[in-house]
Amino acid sequence: MRKVIAILLLIIIGYYSIDTILKIPFGEGVKGVGKHYLESTIKETGAVNSVTAIVVSYRGFDTLGEVTVLFLAATGLGAILYDKKGKKRSLQNASLIVKTSSKIIYPLIALLGAYVFVHGHLTPGGGFQGGAIIATGVLLMFISYRSFETNHKALSIIESLAGMTFVTIGFAGLIYGTSFLQNILPFGIPGELFSAGIIPLIYVAVGFKVGAELTALLDNLLKTIK
């Protein structure tokens, strides 16, 4: 009986989802809001990558909310896993090959992460991706070396400073312009590194914040005794 009800429900849901998908006009030109964004992002924000322009400039307040959610998640995980005695990671050392090559490749990964978030307005990527890449590089050192440690105090200072930078840029827009996160800097030439006003500054702040948060999260996760 339950199976019959489940199959009936599946048929109904499937019918409506196929109906909805068939009504979307795939393969036609862009229209509506999408057309407006694609045509006027370079004029209005100075960023070449229109996804970045939407995420940071048009919807900048949402991005502040997302950063806050990530911060809350990291804090909650740290609070759950809090343990006074659990100071050591229970790792064995990796083999010599893994240790040597991760020592070589770790600065390159950090540099790549910095490249991704600095060039957020020119190439695909941005603050969140760059921060995740940097955290992955630090984790490579965590799983290779038993004695590699990060400075927790420095991590929280970096995180707070980056968050404060974001909010300060927003309030500067409120004071010197018309609204929160209003662009107050000159646009420059589209396509160059120093262009697009406040977008690169915000993405650098987001990159530092996300990198510090994810590193602290992974450190907490690896350090607890089970």
């Binding site: 695909p124 991706q129 995740a132 992955t136």
Partner: peptide, 15 residues
Amino acid sequence: APDVALTEAAIGVAL
């Protein structure tokens, strides 16, 4: 959609 692909690669594959 290279932005989404990059996010999926950085977060889904590794982290």
